[in-house]
Amino acid sequence: MEITIKIFRYNPEKDKRGHYEVYHVEGDENDRVLDILEYIKGNHDGTLSFRRSCAHGVCGSDAIRINGRNMLACKTLVRDVGEKITVEPVLGLKIVKDLIVDMEPFFDNYKHVLPYFINNSPLPEDGRERLQSPEDRARFDETTKCILCACCTTSCPSYWANGNYYGPASIVTAHRFIFDSRDEAAAERLQILSETDGIARCHTAYNCTEACPREIKITKVIGEVKMAMVTGKLD
């Protein structure tokens, strides 16, 4: 089938502002949008720039806007979006070149929520693992899936309005530790999230949940963190 793909282009070394270019390529309904971008880069225009690595939705490199919605180019097939495709960079982060945006602010927000395991108690005396029941392990399973692709944060109207908002991805990461029975810094993280640019900026708009390629129920996750803040309980 013939695929018509309209791609946002911006070369900071030449262009004052971005524009769109349209390409017509032969493709298959099972092609990934990433395959089409690669094909165009290889055969039509080598300057087309985007990030990618794993090509199957596990590394988080290629969050882009496809027909107006945030998706991973490698996890979106032509059959999901049709043969007329518009591809643009995600919103809310500075465009560096074509589909590449500046990810630094996103990772800075991530670093804000103490995104690492904290447990200062002595290890079990036999040197073995800290025990955790399957139920306690299941409590935070969902948020361990996050690949830090930024699809959620860059679909969030509150983040667009205020880039200081830590954003849903950071809250997802915080949740992964707050609800891990082995971690000891839940209170500190909840404190951080109660700052002005923390969870209060979320107005439960659901965009993030719809955007997540890992199908994490982000709005629910945020609700759980909010509840923990209010009740001081972690169940």
């Binding site: 395991f117 693992e129 025990l131 955790q132 392990r137 935070f140 530790f177 891990d180």
Partner: peptide
């Protein structure tokens, strides 16, 4: 595991 890696668990809480 000590670094926090969330291994799946056996019924008695081990890796």
């Amino acid at each position: 595991e000590h670094m926090g890696l969330p291994f799946d668990r056996t019924p008695d809480g081990k890796i």
